[in-house]
């Protein structure tokens, strides 16, 4: 028997009205794997990621996180979400709360951890992303890169088993991209299971254990970053890589 997969997606379909965005996606992610998902905009990569913690309701297909079926409506989705960290393109920090309180909120309300303990975890988490000195600062006073690092700390504080990154550097000024990628590299080296939708080729080469190329709602090609980037087999992959280089 093979080791149980961290995330397993089976024949995932998703339509928005008449528009079919995902047309049957199968993907298995092992524990500790870093999977980078590439593809042109509209290829369905973000939608797939958002189906994993059911921010989007799949039209059909099944998704498993460890032993639990995400797509089974009998499973308590909130319990699963607490184990699945997600970071967004637009940061989505809570603007009425300080950096520290942003990290503490779900610890207090979802995990019901005491205030002292939550504060401890929050400060450690902010230190991990290099922002312990910004604990009492409101998001509006932080740069985009700093906000995104707080968002990562907020997701990590829940002690997730897998992290989803949805184009987390796309809204950042170029000079701020690196500080966020560095945090993500550290996470990957630490053995975190990660699904990363990104256009950062350098990051993909450095840390990805697998690169997945999506287009038109299906996975067109996958393999090690070297295989996919240096020797793509699929015409669409070649075309896409030609455009972004």
């Amino acid at each position: 028997m093979t080791e149980q997969a961290m995330v397993r997606i089976e024949d995932l379909h998703k339509s928005f009205g008449a528009l079919e965005v995902l047309k049957g996606v199968d993907l298995e992610v092992a524990r500790g794997e870093v999977v980078v998902i590439l593809g042109p905009s509209g290829s369905g990569k973000s939608t797939m990621l958002r189906c994993v913690n059911r921010l989007e309701e799949p039209t059909s297909g099944r998704i498993f996180i460890e032993n639990d079926e995400v797509t089974d409506h009998k499973t308590n989705i909130n319990h699963i979400r607490a184990r699945v960290g997600m970071v967004f393109q637009s940061f989505n920090l809570f603007p009425h709360l300080t950096a520290k309180s942003n990290v503490m909120l779900a610890l207090r309300k979802v995990k019901k951890i005491s205030k002292e303990e939550a504060e401890q975890i929050a400060l450690e988490g902010l230190a991990r992303v290099g922002l312990d000195d910004k604990a009492d600062v409101y998001p509006i006073m932080l740069s985009g890169g700093q906000q995104q690092r707080v968002a990562i700390a907020r997701a990590l504080a829940m002690d997730p088993h897998v992290m989803l990154f949805d184009e987390v550097t796309s809204a950042l000024d170029p000079e701020l991209v690196r500080e966020v990628l560095d945090v993500m590299k550290g996470l990957a080296k630490g053995g975190m299971t990660m699904l990363v939708v990104t256009h950062e080729m350098g990051f993909a080469r450095d840390v990805a254990s697998r690169a997945v190329f999506m287009d038109e709602g299906v996975i067109q090609e996958q393999g090690t970053p070297e295989e996919v980037f240096d020797n793509p087999q699929n015409e669409r992959t070649k075309d896409f890589l030609g455009h972004i280089r």
């Binding site: 913690n53 909130n78 989505n92 979802v110």
Partner: peptide, 17 residues
């Protein structure tokens, strides 16, 4: 913004929370 609700939900909060 819709992202606020999504961020809260992605952390495991119920809609009410």
């Amino acid at each position: 913004s819709k992202g606020q609700l999504e961020a809260a939900r992605s952390l495991g909060m119920t809609t009410m929370q």
